[in-house]
Design a binder for these strands. Structure first.
Lengths: 387, 387
DNA sequence: TTAATTCGTTCGCCGTAGGAAGGAAGTGTG
DNA sequence: CACACTTCCTTCCTACGGCGAACGAATTAA
């Protein structure tokens, strides 16, 4: 009956505070890219004496690269240090219906390697083989893996239910984590997109945002106070279920709102207006049609009204301050976005910016990078001093 | 051109980590109430050697009181330490139309002193005089002040606009903080209620909840991941503005939904159903009427449907997992709450509990206590080791 | 060439953490 | 009643890391 070897759980002790300083320096360097030790003392508040050995370690580990001397008007020139983004790699894995796409990126979100893999055997096995293979000799720098679960766009806990055993939470995440030995995060792709836009897209300057993703369904990703919020059961952002439309009828996992106003529904209507095969981007097609066809213009207006009610609902509940349009909603032209903004402004209780997301397909990747990097720093909420 | 004397902003340095340990012990003691040093070593992970002087200090400062020896089967009995809630006092100030009510409470939320004051002169002056007077010789133990702004229930930034200059943010908060020298938080009362129920009411066991407060207007307070979330402009929870009701018409600061389904609206309808003067609790009156009067029963059902749509909307956006009914909504009887729960379950994408809030009037006070205590610990996100 | 200036490093003090040992205060047992 | 035993708390001691201060380094200005 020996106890499990629980690590004595020391408190805030020595090792911890050392780690905090390390992270403080790394995170500063990540932002500033090229700086000297003198600047580090200013920015981190650490004394030069403390920095000397710390920086030495970081150079040895490859986080920092010593560059030539910088310019200075007088005195000894500062020896510049450059942050090496390749020192930290992350893997972003996207699960798609019959394949997985896997990308290795550095901490700038620059893709170092990528590959799409047909899904044949076990998912966990495939991931655990592909990631190290793709990372190659960069494997020791791997800091985390983020896995984006598909089709969750507007299903969350509910719609995922059938595959929950396979995809969500424990099974995949923990298995991969055990095998690869780095933190693994599993989340739905809309949440990852929101994190991506927040970290490197149209939301870097705000702490709160809502990303509205319109595809086969409609889902939202939510960033509040700088963090993605998933709600109690991970179903936050299931805005396709909003009871906004008396005419909307949901069914088995499809919400009443998205049943009428998702990309699929729009496509049907567009095909009815302009017979032919389904266009690649129904929204763009509709916008184009609306210029000449009054029926299309009328429907576009209906659509914008519907989406605006959706956005206003979100604003009333969480007041994100900024709403990003993603997926099919990003295909609106400037005029339509402006119209949407006006509708929202008229009905919302708080000023809210509506604009397009900017990262497109790369949003998930950037989100994965941001997840994986913060997972690496987990347990150590930022204690950085004010700049 | 001397620089402002910015404190050198040391990083995570010595004093800081000492402070962290202090808070770690205090917070553990606050939860456990009666414990020995031996238990503290287990719970905090600090070594006995570290604890001895720390506990000595805390006893000297009045945070802990040494009690007689406890029981033990063998060996030296543990000397028990009792947490003294009176060691930390907070002030909760409620701004009401023409008066302010001021309460001093200990960290259990037990009211030590209270008083209602007619508002004559300047608000800030009044507060800064009343609080110390009321605290009396307990003043040195004052850890924070929370000010609940009134009538913000469903106005947030918008409805507050006229009085923003006087009430919100900087002016009052900062002035009082400067004068009294303790952290001051200003927030609207619904947010405080949500914090209160989370800290000491019907939400102590969950990290996420939504408190729906129905009064003259309808507002919601939001706790996500254990924190009250206010949104980008402080307008989170403005659910009275939800565009759920095609028939609802909002006007100058009144949302379309609350215009039809707030306590005021219900009162009018109840008076129409049973002429007389307006009952104290329109909802209770309606529930009673519904037993015999089919019209009342029909209206009650409409009302529950409306509220359920409101709740479902919130669930779709943030998935709080638990919804607490407060204000007039807490006057529903068990049957009606059950019916509401069923309606929500049928339409929500995620399982959600609906129940009554339990603190009633005391919710704001408990919220203020929780705010003030966490304000005292601010800047030091919990680094407590896992239990 | 010398002074002035700014950077980075090494040295050494100090304070805190935590290990080890010892005293304190009980219970059980011969 | 004496003795071992157990558990709790304290005190002593050592090790380690942060930071102040002095020092060496590398350049510009005079």
């Amino acid at each position: 009956m020996t106890d499990v070897v629980t690590p004595p759980t020391s408190p805030v002790s020595r090792e911890r505070s050392k780690e905090i300083k390390r992270l403080s320096v790394i995170s500063t360097a990540r932002q500033v890219r090229l700086l000297s030790r003198a600047e580090l003392t200013e920015l981190t508040g650490l004394s030069p004496a403390t920095l000397t050995p710390l920086v030495r370690d970081l150079i040895a580990e490859g986080y920092l690269i010593e560059r030539g001397p910088g310019t200075s008007r007088a005195g000894r020139p500062r020896a510049m240090l450059e942050f090496n983004p390749r020192a930290e790699l992350v893997a972003a894995v996207s699960l798609e219906p019959s394949r997985i796409s896997c990308e290795i990126a550095d901490s700038d979100g620059a893709v170092v390697a990528h590959r799409a893999i047909r899904l044949t055997g076990d998912i966990v096995d495939t991931i655990c083989r592909s990631v190290p293979e793709l990372a190659g000799d960069g494997l020791p720098a791997l800091r985390g893996v983020a896995i984006a679960a598909p089709g969750v766009i507007s299903g969350g806990a509910v719609r995922l239910a059938p595959s929950v055993g396979l995809i969500e939470g424990r099974p995949i995440g923990e298995s991969v984590q055990r095998t690869l030995g780095v933190p693994v995060v599993v989340d739905n792709d809309v949440n990852l997109m929101a994190a991506g836009e927040h970290a490197a897209g149209a939301g870097t300057d705000v702490a709160d945002l809502l990303l509205l993703h319109v595809a086969d369904g409609i889902g939202a990703g939510l960033v509040l106070d700088g963090q993605v919020r998933r709600g109690a059961r991970g179903a936050a952002g299931e805005v396709g279920f909003l009871p906004l439309d008396p005419a909307g009828r949901g069914h088995d996992g499809i919400g009443p709102f998205e049943a009428r106003w998702s990309e699929n529904a729009i496509a049907e209507r567009v095909v009815a207006l302009a017979p032919g095969r389904r266009p690649d981007s129904p929204v763009r097609a509709l916008v184009a049609l609306a210029v000449t066809d009054p029926h299309a213009a009328g429907y576009l207006d209906e659509l914008l009204h519907a989406w605006s009610r959706l956005i206003v609902s979100c604003v009333c509940v969480i007041d994100p301050g900024r709403v990003l349009l993603s997926g099919a909603a990003a295909d609106l032209d400037d005029a339509a976005v402006g119209r949407l903004q006006d509708l929202v402004t008229a009905a919302a209780p708080s000023t809210t910016e509506v604009r397009r997301a900017v990262l497109g397909d790369r949003a998930v990747l950037h989100g994965a990078v941001s997840y994986a990097l913060s997972a690496a720093a987990a347990g150590l909420p930022t204690l950085l001093p004010a700049p």
